[in-house]
């Protein structure tokens, strides 16, 4: 069974690192996992995406993810400017870091389950980033793990140290709080 996840963010928000942590958490759970960015010249602030592909068996596939099972959106505005649900499997989760309600995103054309979480506020409460650029890439994974039930709190926590160069403890606590919240 192949699982594909797409993470939308802006250059500098850490979408690539988020995909690395998530894939490593799946790896720690004993599964095969790939993580890769959309390739190109990354620019700070420009829309970027990264991908996680997970399977119980060796992954014989090296193409981009076009039909994700689930989507994470690190920046609320992106959900209004980029077609974040493009190709999503029916019923897939679209987790958006946003202070809007899920109903706000009724303009999505693809059939999916929209979940919103105010990760910006959570990140700032944990001293991650600043108001202009809260650092949400790690805590958003906690919310995703909770909503999807696909990856455990423990595996996510264990995957962090390798990929978080600074502010590990604040990120860890924020992620765990995001996991423990209800959505």
């Amino acid at each position: 069974m192949m699982l594909e996840i797409r993470i939308h963010g802006r250059g500098g928000q850490g979408a690539v690192i988020a995909s690395q942590i998530l894939s490593y958490a799946f790896f720690l759970a004993g599964r095969y996992a790939q993580s890769f960015p959309t390739f190109g010249a990354e620019r700070r602030g420009a829309p970027v995406a990264s991908f996680v592909r997970v399977s119980d068996a060796f992954i014989n596939l090296r193409s981009q993810v076009v039909n994700p099972d689930h989507v994470l959106v690190l920046s609320a505005k992106l959900a209004e400017t980029v077609n974040v649900t493009s190709g999503i499997h029916a019923g897939g989760i679209v987790l958006i870091n946003s202070d809007n309600t899920p109903e706000y995103y009724s303009f999505f054309e693809d059939e999916c389950r929209v979940v919103t979480a105010n990760i910006n506020r959570l990140a700032l409460e944990h001293g991650l980033g600043n108001r202009i650029m809260p650092l949400v890439n790690v805590p958003v994974l906690g919310a995703f793990a909770k909503v999807s039930g696909l990856v455990s709190r423990e595996h996510l926590e264990a995957a962090l140290p390798r990929f978080v160069p600074a502010g590990l403890e604040a990120n860890r606590l924020a992620m765990l709080e995001a996991y423990d919240n209800e959505y």
């Binding site: 790896f27 996992a33 790939q34 390739f39 090296r62």
Partner: peptide, 12 residues
């Protein structure tokens, strides 16, 4: 090794 699709891939 293919650029990005191999060089930048995290895998087991």
């Amino acid at each position: 090794l293919d650029g990005f699709f191999l060089s930048h891939m995290i895998e087991p």
